[in-house]
Simulated scan of single mutants.
Amino acid sequence: MSVTLLIFLSVLQGVTELFPVSSLGHTLLVPALFGVHLDRHAPALLPFLVALHLGTAIALLVYFRVRWIAIAQGFLGSLRGRPSDNGHLAWGLLVGTIPAGLVGLWLEKPLERLFHDLRIVALALLVNGIVLWLGGRQREDEMHRPAQRLTLVQAALVGLAQVGALIPGFSRSGLTMIAGNRVGLDRKDAAEFSFLLGTPIILAAGVLELPKLLHDHGQLVTAALGGLLTGIAAYLSVRFLMRYFEGRGRLASFGIYCIVAGTLCLGWFALHPLPQ
């Protein structure tokens, strides 16, 4: 892999993993549109792309470090019989992580086959845009609750939304933000809960795939450098997005982008032969 392609894929991953536009979808579609051939059947491709998630997870841990320390303290306190808001949030995040983790392990091989057809990925990106556009139109006068007040059932429902993002083209952050809005979180809290909820599963995915690269030191070094670049891009992205959703930023804007991008990709692949 050339240095230029490594930088491109790493930065693309770091930005699109947190922006509600699907990181895997963009990583598969954008190179094809520019005539860059990625061997989607190569055994090392998926582990490399998933290993980049480690950079994103570390960036999220660093950005929300104060929050994570409080959550960890609350969790330990709850085990000792001292309930607290942060302890309740810790259990909510734990419960919310389970659905996507179980489904991802169960359907790992069938889901991998979806990566091989870029038309399916483009269609999923288009549908993702429609979902974001419809789900992101939140009324300003709605009553909201903080993430610490979510019930475990509500946290599980938000976590269940992550299952959709196992299909390349659907955005994990976008789906969980919409689900967070629907259970009563405002835009900022829904974004924060989405990023907190995504950190363990993003980290776990990277850790599980990384051993597949250990037999090739060159691939491992490439993945490590890519993870560093991805982490920098992800840290800048989460800073921007938290400020964006603190203001009047809406998911519907990202939905319009995904609709346009997905439609253009489908049109492009209809007129041009798909790379094998």
Rank of each mutant, 00 (worst) to 15 (best):
I69R: 15
Q162V: 03
T27P: 04
Y244N: 03
Q13G: 07
Q148K: 11
K109Y: 13
L52Q: 08
Q138P: 07
Y244C: 01
T230E: 09
G180V: 06
F64S: 00
V121E: 01
T222G: 11
A155M: 01
H272Y: 11
A161D: 02
I98H: 10
L60N: 02
G92A: 09
Y235S: 04
R80G: 11
I256S: 12
L213G: 03
L111A: 08
R239P: 06
S22I: 03
L236P: 02
Q154M: 09
A233P: 07
L197E: 03
V207N: 09
L5E: 13
L61D: 08
I58K: 03
E112R: 13
G267M: 11
G231V: 03
G262T: 09
V95D: 00
L5P: 01
L264H: 11
G74D: 03
V127C: 11
A161M: 04
E112S: 13
V11N: 07
V158C: 00
V21D: 05
L93I: 04
V238Q: 03
A70K: 09
L274V: 11
L38V: 09
E192C: 14
L241T: 01
H88Y: 05
L18V: 10
S171V: 07
I98P: 10
G25W: 02
E17H: 07
E140F: 11
S171E: 05
D189M: 13
V221N: 08
I167Y: 06
A205F: 04
R250K: 14
C265T: 13
N128F: 10
L60M: 08
S23Q: 04
I232D: 06
T263N: 12
F193M: 01
F195Y: 10
L45M: 10
V11S: 09
R250G: 08
R40I: 11
N86H: 15
A233T: 04
A147S: 15
G25H: 02
Q13M: 12
L45G: 08
L89M: 12
K109M: 12
H272T: 14
D141R: 10
A205C: 10
S23L: 02
L160G: 15
T176E: 00
V260E: 09
G180M: 06
L118P: 02
P200D: 00
H37A: 15
L175M: 05
T27L: 15
L185S: 10
P99M: 08
S171W: 08
R248L: 10
R137N: 14
Q219E: 11
L220D: 04
H116Q: 13
V131T: 06
A124Y: 02
C258T: 09
V183P: 15
A204G: 08
V158K: 00
L94Q: 06
A165Q: 05
L24E: 12
H272N: 14
T27Q: 13
A190H: 09
A270S: 13
L152N: 14
G92H: 03
T222V: 13
H53V: 10
L60V: 01
L79P: 00
